[in-house]
Design a protein around this nucleic acid. Structure first.
Lengths: 188, 188, 188, 188
DNA sequence: ACGTTCGGGACCCCCCGTTAGT
DNA sequence: ACTAACGGGGGGTCCCGAACGT
């Protein structure tokens, strides 16, 4: 019985990874312990050997999702165009579970528990700093980063929500290009 | 017993109005029939005289929220700066229940029932058209509208989610100003 | 569907009555909503139309059990020997569910929620007053009542717990007779 | 790893001792393996190296509690007044975990597993014999012992359950004195 | 017909006693 | 001796439907 070859940490991680996908796909509230454990080929009852409560899992899952994002962002190092292209891509839009947590949870984070909101906020800050570092060292780099993050988050949300595929693609494309252009020659 | 002076249509409307606020405040999934009916001073059971199911209410509530938004948008007619100022304002951020449904539901709409998504999509289209009409008649007006909507939606979501009030305000301010500037002299 | 002929109050009462038996048979903690509802030919889900929580039911069930006891005590009016005979009887011992709540819950009440303990205490006070009223108007009537209640409660508990039927009967008989004798000629 | 310096028997005993207190404080049903092991600074899973099941522990814990009681009773040897004073004392009432198992479990024992009930019954028998030995060698010594045990058990239970401290003290005092008096001049 | 009362079933989180395998 | 997992059950809430009263 059990998964003798899998250490506790591995099982723990497996659960968290699954949850990290789920929260980005379905939102924080929709996360069900039973579903996650079932997907991990475990039973519902064993959950509390790994987490003290559902909130605990949510926090860990969010942290894991954020770590994913860091890795993905680092991969796009060097060029902001590359980052835009990756973020505002169809593959990102079509795989929320593997994508950006800031975008996936922008709507729900405001209603989440304080601990979750803090994590989220920290992640937003880091993203802004990362963007700013990639932008030309102009006085308006900070506001450019904010505009870029807002537009990216908004565009990915809209593109996911809209039923018309053409419109969805158009949103990504338009923002991708216009954002690059706007930020290229920061007006001040 | 009951509300003899209130016609059925009025009661129906009252329920929808309440639900229209709730879905923007708490999201689509969190809408509880019991809560809504309680707030309407009605009993839970009577709900099904007005709606065939919870999904029915959600659809109507979304339509009502959209109608609200149309009215609000029309009020800002004439100047796109005025619209930005209104959308990217603290009062809008702090009152999601009375605010823009596109922004409030950007994350959740992608997971909603087809009917809801259709409604949402239609609303996005109309918003884009409205924005486009307010922009100078340049070739890039369409993409400008998309960028504007994306940035607005993203900014309002981020500003709501973030715990740091200073950062929340900064997001609104930065996008408000940078967006105006960027769109003023559309590069092509 | 449902029990159309049974008013809500009737169903409510039915549930409480069942629970009132159960808490005397199995104790306060062992009371299970599912079990009670099943015995009432209802489903677990409907429970919360009648009670706000399990604790609510426990409180009502205890009150109901106490009311039962009052009625039973009143039936033995006039003679304390009759009351002793009824309380310290095999039929009382063998039917805890229909019997004295003070005796059945003597052990558990001390660990119960404050509201439950208050109810229990009130019931003890009333029982002491009832006993005192039945005793000769001697100065020691109060302490006689306390001795009588203690002995009765203890005897019924012991007689229920003991596995040897002869010993169980002997306990009831001994206390029944010795208590009557002791109280007959109050020493001071 | 583990507690290398503590033999298995010692660990076993430690667990039993803790459980022996707990069952008197919280009852048989409330005994939780997890809690006991935690208090013993052991892990939950190791329990089954010492006991075959929870029922096994309960039986051993009861036996241990009974052994405690024998020791305490032997200490009061010689005078029945001393025994009454010790049993019907505030310190006994306020420390059920270190007190009499017959009193603490009078209500619950009747519902316990057969093995537990047998143990309990044996304990009652021994207590009755002990009491009888302390009483004057009158024909009614047996029934006097039964009355005494019943009153003591009942009084301690009531005194623990009642919320009013004055009433709680009054119960102990009244039974202590009246019982001594009643048994001093056994009527027949 | 409108509204309410009552009930049904499904789900969720959490905890428990127990065991297989290390 | 323990870790990791199982399976079942507990209380609580939800959405929904059916029968009754107005």
């Amino acid at each position: 019985m059990g998964h003798p070859r899998a250490g506790k940490a591995q099982t723990h991680d497996r659960i968290v990874k699954i949850a990290a996908r789920r929260i980005r796909e379905d939102g924080l509230d929709a996360l069900s312990i039973g579903d996650v454990m079932k997907e991990a080929a475990l039973t519902h009852g064993g959950f509390y050997k790994h987490f003290t409560s559902r909130d605990d899992l949510v926090a860990e899952a969010l942290a894991s999702a954020i770590a994913d994002n860091r890795a993905a962002t680092d991969a796009a190092r060097g060029s902001i165009e590359q980052l835009f292209a990756a973020y505002l891509s169809c593959s990102h839009r079509d795989d929320p579970g593997g994508g950006c947590a800031v975008g996936a949870l922008a709507g729900e984070a405001g209603r989440a528990a304080p601990a979750v909101r803090e994590l989220y906020t920290e992640h937003v800050r880091r993203n802004l700093q990362g963007l700013q570092a990639l932008l030309p060292d102009a006085p308006a780099a900070r506001s450019s980063a904010i505009l870029a993050l807002s537009a990216m988050v908004g565009a990915i949300g809209l593109s996911r929500a809209v039923t018309d595929p053409a419109l969805a693609d158009e949103i990504l494309e338009a923002v991708r290009e216009r954002l690059g252009a706007s930020l290229g020659h920061a007006p001040d």
